[in-house]
């Protein structure tokens, strides 16, 4: 499977993260999104006329929506991540997959504006981002009352991976995560998963490893 990827894109990171968690090896094709705007060039536009990345190519299947790519990776390699078949659980997965689009539009827009100087109404983007974070906080809190640490169940699903990157990187767009204790716990639970990988802007949880001690004289 080939991923057209930009290292700083949270949407591309969703795919890399899901693949890492599902144990899928991706063939990464780096795209010069910034400063080169390669995603708007003829080669990439031919693959995805919307001019966005990520793009996942597997044989003649071309996927350009990150949520669809997450579902595809999970269905292929780690079906547990799709969530259960029960009506409520299946609906919750869809609810948060759709919701993740609002995170992209708001927090993602603010981040592109503040970091890579893309145009946008920063006040409006940040306000929409805060509204979305509040909704997520409330949703995760209600889940915790049901004894569930993640968005859909007590185990993570594609819904969590769809929402996590833009949330974790909200401060890049000038939106503070300080006021959200439940989001903080959820984010930590995801970051502590085996096989979790970071992207720039999300630091390693150094506490997961004990403090290293080194023999004196060793470099």
């Amino acid at each position: 499977m080939k991923l057209y990827d930009y290292i700083l894109s949270p949407s591309c990171y969703k795919v890399r993260l899901m693949a890492a968690l599902a144990g899928v090896k991706l063939d990464i094709r780096p795209v010069d999104f910034h400063p080169g705007l390669e995603h708007r060039g003829p080669e990439l536009m031919a693959l995805n006329p919307a001019g966005s990345i990520p793009i996942l190519e597997d044989g003649d299947l071309v996927l350009t929506e990150s949520s669809a790519i997450l579902v595809y990776l999970a269905a292929k390699a780690a079906p547990d991540w799709l969530g259960g078949d029960a009506a409520e659980e299946a609906a919750r997965v869809q609810q948060w997959l759709s919701f993740s689009g609002r995170l992209t539009a708001s927090l993602g827009g603010a981040r592109l504006h503040e970091m890579l100087l893309r145009p946008g109404d920063i006040g409006a983007l940040q306000a929409q981002g805060i509204a979305a974070l509040r909704e997520l906080e409330a949703g995760l809190f209600e889940q915790s009352l049901r004894g569930q640490r993640f968005l859909v169940a007590d185990r993570p699903t594609v819904a969590d991976i769809a929402c996590f990157p833009y949330v974790a990187l909200a401060p890049d767009g000038g939106v503070s995560l300080d006021p959200y204790p439940t989001i903080r716990r959820w984010s930590r639970a995801l970051r502590a998963l085996d096989a979790f990988i970071e992207m720039p802007g999300i630091h390693r949880l150094h506490e997961l490893k004990p403090e290293p001690h080194i023999e004196s004289g060793e470099a």
Binding site: H203, L205, H206, E207, P210, E211
Partner: peptide, 10 residues
């Protein structure tokens, strides 16, 4: 980050 009984700067 917190390791054991100490707080460390990132």
């Amino acid at each position: 980050f917190v390791r054991g009984e100490t707080l460390s700067c990132i």
